[in-house]
Design a protein around this nucleic acid. Sequence first.
DNA 1: TTTTTTCTACTGGTTTTTAGGTATTTTTCG
DNA 2: CGAAAAATACCTAAAAACCAGTAGAAAAAA
Lengths: 211, 211
Amino acid sequence: MLQNKLRTVIVDDHPIVIEGLKNLLKNESNIELIGGFQNGADIMLYLESGKVDLILLDITLPDVNGMDLCLKIKKKYRSTIVLILSNRTERSIVVQTIQNGASGYLLKNSSLDELRRCIAEAVNGSICYSKEVTEILSRPSRNELLAAPRLTKREKQILELIAQGKTSQAIGEELFLSPLTIDTHRKNLLQKFQVKNVAELIMSANQQNLF
Amino acid sequence: MLQNKLRTVIVDDHPIVIEGLKNLLKNESNIELIGGFQNGADIMLYLESGKVDLILLDITLPDVNGMDLCLKIKKKYRSTIVLILSNRTERSIVVQTIQNGASGYLLKNSSLDELRRCIAEAVNGSICYSKEVTEILSRPSRNELLAAPRLTKREKQILELIAQGKTSQAIGEELFLSPLTIDTHRKNLLQKFQVKNVAELIMSANQQNLF
DNA sequence: TTTTTTCTACTGGTTTTTAGGTATTTTTCG
DNA sequence: CGAAAAATACCTAAAAACCAGTAGAAAAAA
């Protein structure tokens, strides 16, 4: 395991961060830096051609959400390790990314030591958080006791349209579906979020950073 | 002016960013990198002893606000050039920092070219923004466009209860008012926010940080 | 103290959502 | 392939929200 260097890429929309990480990691004996990408599309494209062992991934990207991207990567390339490196401190985001298969979550103000430690643990198969993230996770916001529901693609899409104030009728027309179908999705959304009506639904979705 | 290198420091709470900038700037002929600081107190302390020509300053710092820090620095060390390098895209923040004496504002996803150009212009005495920032400044803040509606006390209170998923019936009982009265307030809220239903109402209120 | 705003409440009618369900087809995944 | 999950669509009926008005009382501002 150690004889082979980890083929590593960095995905971050800030070139400065990419440069910084490259610099920080270039002297690591077990890491071979392959490159940096500034958006989700580029890294997905690259993954098709080259083997990658480790991805350092930001949450905030210009084209896709880092959480979704993580899931997409893990689905297609199971063995690739994804470590999240982000500024976002919302508990819901941390939990979501881990559910989506990430092997760890670090804040960008982590030290090199922490990064090193997390990479080592991730390679080992365990999940690792930077100090501050551990703290975020340890104080259970009572909001999160109701675990963030896993939504299907359709549900996310319809939730989005509901948030825009559209009626089931209008959504049905937009998606070429029966309004009755939209009603069913609506019902399922309310159930998944454990709320009684759209007002609560939108509040809850907002608190969980779904928009 | 050009014979003397610019004595430059970086202030950013993310060590990774500091590393990245150092790396990006180390080959610049007119820049002498002195060091990086992770908070406001450290840089203020340093300034007392050493001369600094250029400060690359982040807005988000652990101890003080970058805008305030900028003002403090400019008051005490008039000739020191402060360039803001931040992720924050709020128009109000950009305007405020410039008013506080900063010589420019760049987003962290700026290219090295942009950074180089801005440093040159700042030395020249003019104010320089990265491309995206220019755009932010040119489009009238959406706060100005969708003026946040002025809500009465009652309306705020009822909005709050609506967001909790309560029906007009329930709200009426809670406030000892007729449900018909609540309906009127509801109607007025929709009108003030210029939306069609609660879904949009809650979204809008959330975007305006009313909760 | 006028004037204006806010708060209150109503009428009457329409549209939309919500709450129980059931049930078939299509996708996805092991 | 077969099973599970997701997406589709329907029924009935009640509840709630939305629309378009009017209007008096209370409070705040001019």
